[in-house]
Amino acid sequence: MKTLMLGAAMAALSTGVSAQTIGFSQIGSESGWRAAETTVTRQEAEARGIDLRFSDAQQRQENQIAAIRSFVAQGVDAILLAPVVATGWDSVLEEAKEAEIPVVLLDRQVDSSEDLYLTAVGSDLVHEGAVAGQWLVDNKPEGACRVVELQGTTGSSPAIDRANGFRQAIEGTPDIEIVRSQTGDFTRSGGKEVMESFLQAEGGGDNICALYAHNDDMALGAIQAIKEAGIDPGDDILIVSIDAVPDIFKAMAEGDANATVELTPNMAGPAFDALAAYMADGTEPEKFIQTESALYTQDDDPMAQYEARKDLGY
């Protein structure tokens, strides 16, 4: 709330008209990734000489709606919105449309009609899983490969989609078999505890060829469990996970993890590009801009990646 008022006050103060003014209504800072998204968005705006007006909604939709109204009243050139929930945006999006201010959704979708926003930038969760699966298909050792899977919170859409994408990718490779699958609730301690039971259940870990974790945190917990069991993660058991948080690069640099699929915090870059094209000559972008789900392995200079990311707020 304080941030919101502060943001509004600062916005009101900066009367100087720069090249472009864009408002950004962020959900909050509930996770490291979210904090990184905020940092990267600021960096991208600065690099383009954009005057970014930032508003932190502290997980509340009413704060976001208030922030968008205030952006409209200030007459910004465009609005970035990372919506906290999917529903209830119609009227405020219409207000923006009437004021002819384009809105770009970041990271999450809304249920409103497509003509109420310019485009949405986001990652494809199924694709992320598929990239992870494809890496394993390409890098598995000779012969049969028994895989254990650490799932996200049961029933959450990342858990469902990342599981499906992975399965699609390994479908044509009969050597790869998912032998155990259990939720680690996206947490390090969950990942560690469940991995311990996997190791017990699978002959002390001798029967496991690879671990697929739905996020890096669970993988990091599992790596500790594997080490404590006297096995070498990254070597005896291959580790592939999703998110690309800084700590996983550290693990890669130490040879403990093998690959991660990036859920990029840079949603703003593509959004700014689409806006620039739209404002320059009215180019209508696609309604969904999929960010790249880049794959990082031990060959990608993980220590440099770690250094580049460690101050983004993860």
Binding site: E30, S31, D185, F186, T187, R188, S189, G190, K192, D217, L220, G221, Q224
Partner: peptide, 14 residues
């Protein structure tokens, strides 16, 4: 004990 176990303090989940 929990923080030491995962070598990290996870405020959201611990």
């Amino acid at each position: 004990v929990v923080a030491a176990d995962i070598r990290g303090a996870d405020a959201n989940n611990a």
